[in-house]
Simulated scan of single mutants.
Amino acid sequence: MLARRTFLTGTAAAGALALVGCSGRDTQPTPTTSAPSPTRTSASPEEIAPSVAGTVVEGLNVPWSIVFLASGDALVSQRDDAEVIRVSPDGATTGLGPVPGVEVRTGAEGGLLGLAVDPDEDDVVYAYVTTAADNRVVRMRLEGDTLVSPTVILEGIPLGSSNHQGGRLLFDGEGSLFVSTGDSGSADLAQDRGSLAGKILRVDRDGEPVDGNPFDDRVWSYGHRNVQGLAFDADGRLWASEFGAQETDELNLVERGGNHGWPIVEGESDDPELVAPQATWSTDECSPAGLAITRDTAFVAALRGQRLWSVPIGPDGAGEPSALLDGEYGRIRDVVVAPDDSLWVSTSNTDGRGDVRGGDDRILRITL
């Protein structure tokens, strides 16, 4: 067993999250407050100068999720191949085999999605997968260059016909696993706290609810349309990037027990019962996927927007976004903080919605 690792992408304790109440309904427990409610002010992040240092690896199939092992190697999920590969910092790749039970449908957003590595056991890997019946989370063990003993720990997450599957996994430092789910194309399920769709869930390593969850079940927050990015900041606050419908994409500071609004509202709202987003974009500018936070800056991968957004964040919320890599590499799927404090950024041009370029898909290394 390895000592708990701490990465800048966030392994802070869930108890340090901003626990801010957001609903006055009698049926909803009122979360206690451990941090002030965020407001819209300018943040002053550490001065950074992002620069593409080169390509780590190319020729990948829809690299959806990147997570790092203690060795410095990364595990990468290939969505449509349903295969996990190991990528070393010098770009060498090793196939670890397909994840069993994954159903891939041409032109759809499902398949092999998010990955997470247990913060205490480097050889235990979790994956969010689409099957013929549902979306689910499986736990596997990494033995040498093979993933073995797949065990379903969470099933019954509603399956969208082609999209809105969610799919991001993120551990906190106490071993709780956060799972983002989409509304499965049935918007009303996002407001139904009895459904796993349109939620951010918090479960233990066996998929069971964690003590301290706001509703004594698996739900951490609700009213989400399609969260595909999760990250903790340096203060232990959970942030999420979220697809809008027709007009507005969002960067959200997630509140314990919070109603984040979908489908009651898309984007900004002055309703005190709902959690307002910290930053917004038009759906043409963003379509956000992966999310990473380092140096008081949130980096948001943009698919339709074909860029990487940089958003300063601070104790009072988020500042003005600025665009990086604008159109240079096509659709951007994931962004993570590597052990050397660089960013690894994956493209998503082989997903059926992008223009494939020579070498696609690839993972870029960006220094800050």
Rank of each mutant, 00 (worst) to 15 (best):
L2A: 05
R4P: 11
A13M: 06
A13N: 12
A16C: 14
C22I: 00
G24R: 14
D26C: 00
D26L: 14
P29E: 15
P31Y: 11
P38G: 08
P45R: 11
V57H: 05
P63Q: 02
W64A: 02
I66P: 06
V67Y: 10
D73C: 12
L75C: 08
Q78Y: 11
D80R: 10
D80S: 10
D81L: 10
E83Y: 08
D90V: 09
G95R: 15
R105K: 12
L115F: 01
A116N: 02
V117H: 03
V117D: 09
D123H: 15
Y128P: 00
Y128R: 01
T131I: 03
R136M: 05
R136N: 06
R139T: 01
T146M: 06
V148I: 14
V148E: 07
T151R: 07
L159S: 03
G167Y: 11
G167K: 06
G167Q: 14
R168W: 14
L169K: 04
D172R: 02
L177Y: 00
T181C: 04
T181H: 09
S195L: 05
A197F: 00
L201E: 12
L201Y: 11
D204K: 07
D206C: 00
V210W: 05
N213G: 00
P214E: 04
P214T: 00
D216H: 08
D216V: 01
N226M: 09
V227K: 02
Q228Y: 08
L230A: 09
L230H: 07
A231W: 10
F232N: 02
D233K: 00
R237D: 15
F243C: 01
Q246S: 15
Q246E: 13
T248E: 13
D249F: 11
L251D: 08
N259W: 11
G261W: 12
P263K: 05
V265C: 05
G267W: 11
E268Y: 07
D270E: 10
D271W: 11
P277H: 14
Q278K: 06
S282M: 04
P288H: 05
A289D: 11
A301D: 04
A302R: 04
L303P: 05
L303R: 06
Q306H: 07
R307H: 13
W309G: 03
P312S: 07
P315G: 12
P315D: 15
D316W: 01
G317K: 03
L325R: 05
E328V: 14
Y329K: 00
D340W: 10
S342R: 05
S346F: 09
T347Q: 01
T347E: 15
R353W: 01
G358N: 12
D360W: 10
I363M: 04
R365V: 14
L368D: 07
